[in-house]
């Protein structure tokens, strides 16, 4: 099914939340998820969208995760 490629950040936000177990603070690095695993899921969702912004959002989430949570 082709998903409309209009700019709908909420779609990605929801996808991100699902990917990240929103109960934990942003999910990144918490429980068993690492930044890489979270990003992997985000990109999987983004791959359905024909819009570079979705990728950009995933990457922003990843670099924020790396900066904020993972201290190494």
């Amino acid at each position: 099914m082709k998903i409309k490629s209009s700019f709908k950040p909420i779609v990605l936000v929801l996808a991100f939340a699902l990917c990240l177990h929103i109960a934990a603070p942003f999910g990144f690095g918490a429980e068993t998820r690492t930044c890489e695993q979270a990003l992997d899921r985000c990109l999987l969702v983004a791959s359905f969208m024909a819009n570079p912004f979705y990728y950009a959002f995933c990457l922003e989430g990843y670099v924020f995760c790396k900066k904020y949570i993972q201290i190494y």
Binding site: E36, L43, K66, K67
Partner: peptide
């Protein structure tokens, strides 16, 4: 590479 996207692994 994560799903074809090149990503840095550390700051």
């Amino acid at each position: 590479s994560v799903m074809g996207t090149q990503l840095p692994t550390q700051y």
